[in-house]
Write a protein that binds this DNA or RNA. Structure first.
Lengths: 135, 135
DNA sequence: GCTTACGTTTACGTTAACGTAAGCCTTTGC
DNA sequence: GCAAAGGCTTACGTTAACGTAAACGTAAGC
């Protein structure tokens, strides 16, 4: 089910391979295909996932960790492949990249502020603990 | 509706004040109250929001930008107030803070990798544009 | 030859986070 | 005195992202 030479990268994956590796259900993987985020090959009925499919899945899950919708993750993934023929499409692509970057910078700022607030909360909690333990 | 002295911070806000300021609907604000994230005072039936309520709302919206659920945002907000009496609760609080921090660090890594991928995508798009515009 | 494991499709169910009225007060400007 | 502006509750509708289950096919091991 997972043809590999000795210790290198597998050539293909079954759906349960990927579900195990990433801790998601096969239903979820098929759902992503349904939404146009994956398009694995088929051997008869059975889905065969390539290393590229696996990378796409990783990108989707990373997007989820950042709070992206599946539509957003699909857009981001589509930014990678150079299927943007004409000038107008390329400029819209650049526009989309700029917007995503701005969004990510906002997230960075949000994380920074939350981080320092967590620091303060931890400070207070440790102080309260010290007071409660050794009065 | 928004009592203030001259140019300083308002003392209270109406629900539409906040909805306008943050670009959300009043329905959304009431929904957050329903979920236990806000608890404004009442003048009769009417909700009166304090500056602290407004800060809470800002925290909720920041959480949304980071992909948090409302439950997660509520937990984070609860980490701020020092209503954690005994030792066990304080230790669970410290535990929760540590977990959030780990999650945020993961998000930081995710943003870094996505950022550099966007850089590469922009590079390729600019190169393709140069080829298409001045061949 | 039969169970077990893995795969498939189809379809209905569920949860979060609101949207969208409807119907009803109260206050304010003219 | 009345219309417009804002506020309220109640309730049904909607979308995204899967969960859950049924019903079936197939290949492997004993």
């Amino acid at each position: 089910m997972k043809p590999e030479s000795s210790h290198a990268e597998p050539v293909s994956y079954s759906i349960s391979d990927l579900s195990r590796e990433f801790g998601i259900t096969t239903r979820t993987i098929r759902f992503y295909e349904d939404k146009g985020l994956l398009a694995p090959e088929r051997r008869g009925q059975t889905r065969i996932y390539s290393p590229e499919d696996r990378v796409r899945l990783k990108l989707i899950l990373r997007g989820k960790r950042l709070g992206f919708s599946l539509d957003e993750s699909r857009e981001i993934i589509e930014m990678y492949d150079p299927a943007h023929g004409n000038v107008e499409q390329l400029q819209r692509l650049l526009q989309g990249i700029a917007e995503k970057r701005a969004q990510l910078q906002q997230q960075l700022r949000d994380i920074q502020s939350l981080m320092s607030e967590l620091d303060e909360a931890e400070e207070r909690a440790r102080a309260a603990l010290a007071r409660n333990i050794s009065p």
